[in-house]
Design a protein around this nucleic acid. Structure first.
Length: 403
DNA sequence: TCTGGGGTCCTAGGACCC
DNA sequence: TCTGGGGTCCTAGGACCC
């Protein structure tokens, strides 16, 4: 039985989409996308030329500027990314009925049951797929093929850029043996460092150890790590599951101490979240407030409702209470706030109309529906919640514009 | 040097219940 | 006199991913 999962990973996706949309960026070898050079933020993606200077995704913009001051720094647009991502997905759906997007620039395709169609290898399919993505969207991608998601993903990592790699069943351990532990999904910087202090840095070391020795060394993570080092990973792709959370957050362009300004921003963020909930026919039982102080300490406060909701007024009332309780402690130490955010979690599907709903709540629902209709026609900014107007202006220049 | 924004999953402790 | 115990819900924080 051959490898049956494909992982498609677009090469320098954000950079390439920006080049497509902004012709003046096309000739630039040193292009960094994520934010302007004077903005707070991190690198979203760097051109391969810029990567040679050590710039990579996740690096603070300011640090990238220092590494390569001559590079062009550009802030892309989320709607452009989303559109490009949908265009790619449309191509992928011609190849398999099961396409699961992992992010804007990554997707898994299930080819289980195609043994008769492609008895030996899926490489010819992958090659065709790569060519059609290129032809229809102008974007390059790399494709990994494996017996499970983890192997397919690691294969596409190894194939980058614009490459194809297939790891067939039986060859997983050999393929993994050459990798550092940090290459495994779920092993990030913190975990890798902890294990490195114990002398554990490479996958082959884990392959050589028996489970009880490994458990004595690293404790309860031993079983999961051992299995991954041997090449086991998820083999089923589940499409169409309910999302776990819907959230909006914004880092303010400068730290803010004025609670009224913060509440105004919170109100706008809440409106975004509530709008998305209704759009996706979801209701939330829990709302979480997030604050990041100027010393980068982050606190979250949450509240669970008796009845799930998708209404701005209910979500905002709870979020504001959480904010006031949390902010009281902040002001004591005269701390500025650099980030504020709100998340809706414990999501469920919105119920059909409830005949016994209290009239007051029904009125809020009618109001939300009217707002959604206006925004559907004229855009989100067509309607601004009154609570967002309270303080004279929105703080800083940073606003939660992205949908 | 200064650290985004959208997510996912896990852990640990306390409340509460039977 | 010692102070069960397991399950579930809730909160807060943390690691990780792209």
């Amino acid at each position: 039985m051959g490898a049956r999962i494909l992982h498609v990973d677009l090469d320098a996706f954000f950079v390439e989409v920006c080049r497509q949309r902004h012709p003046e960026l096309r000739g630039l070898e040193l292009l960094v996308v994520g934010g302007r050079r004077d903005q707070r933020g991190v690198v979203q993606s760097a051109s391969y030329g810029a990567r040679r200077f050590g710039i990579h995704a996740g690096m603070p913009i300011a640090q990238a500027v220092r590494l390569c001051p001559q590079a062009t720094f550009f802030q892309g647009s989320f709607p452009h990314y989303r559109e490009a991502s949908h265009a790619v997905r449309a191509v992928l759906e011609r190849f398999s009925p099961t396409v699961v997007s992992a992010s804007l620039d990554e997707a898994y395709l299930d080819f289980v049951g195609t043994e008769r169609l492609h008895p030996v290898s899926l490489l010819p399919v992958a090659e065709l797929l790569r060519d059609e993505v290129r032809r229809d969207t102008g974007l390059d991608c790399s494709v990994g093929i494996g017996p499970n998601r983890m192997i397919a993903k690691l294969a596409s990592d190894a194939a980058k850029p614009r490459g194809l790699m297939e790891v067939r069943a039986g060859w997983e351990a050999g393929f993994l043996a050459g990798l550092a532990l940090e290459a495994l999904p779920g092993v990030g910087p913190k975990t890798a460092e902890r294990w490195a202090e114990l002398g554990l840095t490479d996958v082959w070391q884990v392959q050589c150890m028996n489970e009880s020795a490994l458990e004595r060394l690293i404790g309860s993570d031993a079983l999961a790590l051992k299995r991954r080092a041997q090449g086991y990973g998820g083999t089923t792709l589940r499409a169409n599951r309910l999302p776990r959370s819907v959230s909006r957050e914004t880092t303010l362009s400068r730290d803010v101490r004025d609670p009224a300004a913060l509440e105004a921003t919170l109100s706008l963020l809440t409106a975004r979240v509530a709008g998305q909930l209704r759009d996706e026919r979801l209701v939330a039982r829990t709302v979480t407030l997030k604050l990041r102080h100027d010393d980068f300490r982050t606190v979250t406060r949450r509240h669970t409702f008796a009845i799930a909701t998708d209404l701005d007024a209910e979500l905002y009332a709870a979020a504001r209470e959480l904010f006031r309780a949390a902010f009281a402690g902040v002001r004591d130490r005269d701390r500025g706030v650099r980030l504020i955010g709100i998340a809706a979690t414990s999501l469920g599907m919105a119920a059909e109309a409830d005949l016994f709903e209290p009239p007051a709540r029904q009125r809020l629902r009618d109001l939300s529906a009217a707002v959604d209709q206006l925004r559907g026609k004229y855009g989100f900014a067509a309607v601004t919640p009154g609570s967002a107007l309270g303080s004279a202006r929105r703080p800083g220049g940073s606003s939660p514009e992205s949908p």
